[in-house]
């Protein structure tokens, strides 16, 4: 198993944290993981993203130019990263905020109404959890849902631990979607 993932959205959607959560969960399973945020002169209202690698083998570059999985939380992210996906890769996009369709026909595409699900369960801030929950269902070999839930204890700051109840509800709900 070797997946190179980009989680992207606008600042505040929790994309960096979502990437960390995947790493912390996969670590528990003894997998090799790396996480690197994009940093630099990002445009306001533009995209924030992180590269995550989860692998059975030692990781070379932590930077992911051509991902096998893209999680796009907003329109600009999908525009930026859909073309970079490897052939046969997975594009999981937030159809609550993205009102256009992906263009490529050589990739697997999954839409999730991440904001709607999160809001419905009590917090629109948890849209990132909806995306991760759904990703786990589509790629169960990546990491188990139990370990993702367990990793919330470390991934979420002390100040925000109180939101974990909602986070878990959103993770589970998105995870149980059958499409």
């Amino acid at each position: 198993m070797h997946e190179e993932i980009i989680v992207a959205g606008f600042g505040g959607q929790g994309v960096i944290m979502a990437g960390k959560l995947l790493c912390l969960a996969a670590m528990k399973e003894g997998k090799h993981v790396s996480h690197i945020p994009s940093y630099g002169a990002e445009m306001r209202g533009g995209t924030a993203n992180c590269s995550v690698v989860i692998s059975d083998n030692p990781i070379g570059s932590p930077v992911v130019p051509h991902p096998t999985i893209v999680v796009a939380m907003n329109g600009p992210s999908m525009r930026k990263f859909e073309p970079r996906l490897k052939k046969g890769g997975l594009l999981l996009y937030n159809s609550s905020l993205i009102d256009f369709k992906p263009e490529r026909d050589d990739i697997e595409v999954i839409a999730i109404k991440a904001n709607d699900i999160a809001e419905d369960e009590g917090s629109k801030m948890a849209a990132n959890m909806a995306a991760i929950g759904r990703l786990q269902a589509v790629k169960p070999e990546l990491v188990s849902l139990d370990n993702i839930i367990d990793a919330l204890k470390i991934a979420v700051s002390k100040r925000n631990q109180k939101h974990n109840e909602v986070n878990i509800k959103v993770l589970k709900r998105a995870n149980s979607i059958t499409a």
Partner: peptide
């Protein structure tokens, strides 16, 4: 910069 910015176990 990559080594400094990356997280690893």
């Amino acid at each position: 910069g990559f080594l400094g910015q990356m997280s690893e176990p």
